[in-house]
Amino acid sequence: MDKILKTQNLFKKFDGISALNNFSCFVEKNEILGLIGPNGAGKTTFFNVVTGFLPSDSGDVYFHGKQISNKSPYRIVADGISRTFQDLRLIRQLNVLDNVLLSFQNQAGEKLSGVFFQKNKIIQTELQNRKKAESLLEYTDLSELANEPAGNLSYGQQKLLSIVCCLAADAKLLLLDEPVAGINPSMREKILSVIEDQKKEGKSIVIIEHDMDFIMEICDRVIFMDTGEKISEGTPGEVRNDPKVIEAYLE
């Protein structure tokens, strides 16, 4: 299988604390990779580095074989990597539909020249995007909330919406930072099925999650990390029973 993402020897330190310590890994096409580890292990930092929000101290990131280290976040999204945030981000003042519409890439109407000189083209793409957005909201049962400010949604609905935004961005690789932490069981099921559907559509997904049952249920492969290092890697079962992992959790 092809490797859609590859990182090599990533290092990142914060005030002497290693958040990434010679961290190398890959993500295969059409796989769901789980990234687990204790608090402060460096999982979120890994996402921040891959998506361009934080520069690594050294090391490389390759997406589809092309180096993307040091690219700006918006360019990385354009390449096809989208993420969600552990601390849940959306534009709460904009309504649900606008959040999704905002997430489409390459919009003619987001260019000033387009605003004034391509009225028809803008109306057309806006209509097309609106249709796509509406079908995404329907698919995730958020249609009825389309005109609500995103901030009025429940925590779980907001987490789901942030995944919908990644889908609207047409990402090939989704990086989901704790997608089901702190949400109710039925919403958990829904998010689980959305992620599984994405895999069926040929996307690749990396999930950070503390919920081990969720990881066991959905992941093809799991990486366990601690203090910025990869400690263990393999199928969910292998990693779970790895003595090094058990030891790390007991500490």
């Binding site: 929000f53 918006y74 999204v77 945030f85 534009i91 003042q93 904009l94 987001e110």
Partner: peptide, 15 residues
């Protein structure tokens, strides 16, 4: 408006 409310999210959706 998105930039006004949350620059990080705006970047994360490719702006």
């Amino acid at each position: 408006k998105a930039v006004r409310e949350d620059e990080v999210f705006s970047q994360a959706v490719g702006k």
